[in-house]
Design a protein around this nucleic acid. Structure first.
Lengths: 329, 329
DNA sequence: CCCCATTACGTAGCACGTAACAATG
DNA sequence: CATTGTTACGTGCTACGTAATGGGG
C-alpha cells in the first residue's frame, strides 16, 4: 500500500469518479492513476470502485469505508508536514479560513491589519461563503478554521469555540416614517419591505433564526424584499429610499460611515447571536494561528485554545465555555 | 514522504532508538533504515531524533509530535487492510485480546468453545496480564480489545462497555473455624491470613479496591499472606490448610470442582465489580469480533456495539450504559 | 463518434542490500 | 574492540509517461 494510491482513490472520488479529470488536476497521466488504483484493489483483494463498462460507476460499500480512513490518513500526512514546517520556521506557513461575508468585510480586516505585518510570510486567505459551505470546507480540511454565526451543533469533527456575541441592527433611511415613532416594534416593521442578508443557511433559514421567530411571534409573515448574502447590498437597498427596513449584523453598521442611516431599537430583535470559531478536531495549530485567533477573540488565548483542543471529549469541549462570559462585539 | 519512512521512525522509537535492532526485527538492513530516516528528516526539514555521536540519543520535541501522528497513520493503514480483509473473507482474520488471568481461565473458555468451531479460520489469541499492561496493549493497538475488571476511567482512547458484574467469593477449607460461625464478618476474617490475587493494579491496589475499603472500614489492616495474579494459586493456598482465607472473583469458584472449599457469605465483601470490555476508539470491528463480544456479553449485540462505537463522544459512550441493567455473571 | 478506462511498453528514479568506513563507549 | 550509525555503490523493482486498444453512451 502506497500513500499515492490512497491519494489517487481519494482524489478520484472527489472528482466524480473521473480518472481523466483527476489526472489533469494532479498533473499526471490517466494510466498511472488507473493502474495504481487497480494495484491497490488487487493488494487489498477488494474493489473500491465498481465499474460499469469503461466507467467507474460508483464507490462500493467497502470502498466507502476505505475512503473514509484514507481521508484521515492523508489529512494526518499533511499534519506531519505542518508540524515540521511550523517548527522549522514558526512565522511561515499558510492560514486559511472561511466565513460569512459580514465577518470577512467588517470584523476580520482589523484583525488582519494587526496580523499581516507581524507575520509577513504567512499566506493568509479568507473565503466568504454560506454557513453550510463554510462548515463543509472546515470539516474537509480545505480551510484551517471557520468563523461562523448561528449555533451549529452539527455533529461534525469541528471544535467550536465562541468568540463573541453580536446583535442585529435594524436600519432605515433618515427620512423613514419609522424614525418618527418613539418605540418601534416588529409589528411596525411588518408594514415595510424587509431587506436582510441570509443569516447562514439560505433564504428559508429565516424561519429558524431568532429573527424569523421574532416575526412569527408577532404573527407576521415578513415581506422579504431582498435576501442577499451581503450586508452592503442590504444597506444600499435601505439607502435607495424605497421604504425598506434593513436588518444586518451590528458589526456591519458603522455609525460614522453609515451616518445617513438610522439604527432603530426593536426589542423583539434584541437577541444576541453567538459568533464562533470552528476548528477541525485533529488539526495541528501553528503558533501564528493561535495568534490570529487571539487577535480575533482575546479570551481565546493560546492556553485556552490548546486546552480545549486537547480535551478528548466533544461535550467537554462544548461545556468548557458554558460558564464563561462571552463578550459582546 | 513514504509510509515506510513513518514505519521506520515508529519502529526505531519502539526499539529504544536502536536502528540495528530495528533492522533485525524488520528483516531489513541498517543502512536502509538509516537512510530513509535521514531522507524523511531532510524532506521535513527537522530532526526527528537527536544524535550524539553515532547514537540516536533521544527524540526531539518535534519528533514526539510527528511520531504521535505517524502512529495514528500506521494504525489506520492497518485498519484499511482489516476492512478489506474482513469484506473479502468475513470468517477469516485474527482476534486478540488481553485480560486478567481469572477471565482467561474461567469465563473465556466457554466463549471460545462456542466461537472457535464457528470461525476455524480466525486466529485467536488471549493474553493474560495485569490490568495496567492490558490497558496499554489495547490503547497501543497491540490487541483488538481488553477485558478488564475494576472501573478504569483512564482518559485513554478506549471505548468501555460493561459486560456483567461479578462478586468476590470468600473461600476457606472445609475444616476452617470460620465455617462454624452463623455469620462471618470482615472482622472475623482479619484474624486469619488472607490470600487473594492482585485485583488489577498490583499489590498496593488493595487499598483502592472496595475489597480494601471493606477492610479499612472495619478498621483492619489485612494480613496478606499471599498476593498472586492467579486465582488457582489462591485456592491451592486455601487448600493447604494453613487457615488462610481466600478471596477470588466468584467466577473462579466452581461449586463442583471446588467442592472441597466452602464459600462464606461476608456482607462487607458483597460489592459488585463491573467487568468491562475496552476497544480502541478508532478500531475497525470485523463481523466475527462482534460475534465474540456477543458471545461473551449477550447484551452487547452487534447493533449495540456498533452504535456505541459510532458515537463521536466518549461521554455519550459512557453514558450509554448508565441506564442499562448490567447482568450478573 | 467522442469519451474514458485499460493494456502494452520503455525508461528513469529510487529503495534496498552489500561492503567499507567512522566514531563512540 | 565491540557496537552502532553513516557513506559508497551496484542492482532490481516499480512508478510513471507515451502510445495504442477497446467499450459505452
Amino acid at each position: 500500500m502506497k500513500l499515492q494510491q490512497l491519494r489517487y482513490i481519494w482524489e478520484v472520488n472527489r472528482h466524480d469518479l473521473n480518472i481523466s479529470a483527476t489526472a489533469l488536476r494532479l498533473y499526471t497521466s490517466q494510466p498511472g492513476i488507473s493502474k495504481q488504483i487497480r494495484l491497490l484493489e488487487e493488494e487489498l483483494g477488494v474493489q473500491i470502485f465498481s465499474r460499469s463498462g469503461k466507467h467507474l460507476s460508483k464507490v462500493t460499500p467497502v470502498g466507502e469505508d476505505i475512503l473514509a480512513v484514507a481521508g484521515d490518513i492523508l489529512h494526518k500526512i499533511e499534519t506531519i508536514k505542518r508540524i515540521a514546517s511550523d517548527y522549522k520556521s514558526p512565522t511561515q506557513g499558510s492560514l486559511s479560513m472561511s466565513t460569512t461575508h459580514t465577518q470577512a468585510r467588517y470584523t476580520l480586516p482589523d484583525v488582519i491589519k494587526e496580523f499581516a505585518p507581524k507575520y509577513p510570510k504567512v499566506a493568509l486567505s479568507v473565503i466568504a461563503g454560506t454557513t453550510m459551505e463554510n462548515i463543509v470546507k472546515a470539516a474537509n480540511g480545505d480551510v484551517d478554521f471557520v468563523i461562523i454565526t448561528e449555533n451549529f451543533d452539527i455533529s461534525s469533527n469541528l471544535v467550536v469555540m465562541p468568540c463573541f456575541s453580536y446583535h442585529t441592527a435594524v436600519l432605515v433611511s433618515k427620512d423613514h416614517p419609522l424614525t418618527q415613532l418613539a418605540q418601534v416594534s416588529a409589528l411596525d416593521i411588518g408594514n415595510y419591505p424587509l431587506a436582510t442578508h441570509t443569516f447562514g443557511f439560505g433564504f428559508n433559514s429565516l424561519n429558524t433564526t431568532s429573527l424569523g421567530k421574532a416575526f412569527k411571534w408577532v404573527g407576521l409573515e415578513p415581506k422579504i424584499a431582498l435576501a442577499a448574502g451581503n450586508a452592503d447590498v442590504v444597506k444600499s437597498y435601505v439607502r435607495a429610499g424605497l421604504g425598506a427596513v434593513g436588518v444586518v449584523a451590528d458589526m456591519a453598521y458603522d455609525s460614522t460611515e453609515d451616518s445617513d442611516l438610522v439604527r432603530l431599537n426593536v426589542p423583539e430583535f434584541g437577541d444576541a447571536y453567538p459568533l464562533s470559531i470552528g476548528i477541525r478536531r485533529d488539526c495541528y495549530i501553528p503558533g501564528y494561528m493561535y495568534d490570529f485567533i487571539e487577535g480575533f477573540a482575546p479570551h481565546l488565548d493560546r492556553n485556552t485554545v490548546a486546552e480545549v483542543m486537547s480535551l478528548p471529549d466533544p461535550v467537554a469541549q462544548e461545556d468548557y465555555f458554558a460558564n464563561i462570559d462571552i463578550p459582546d462585539y
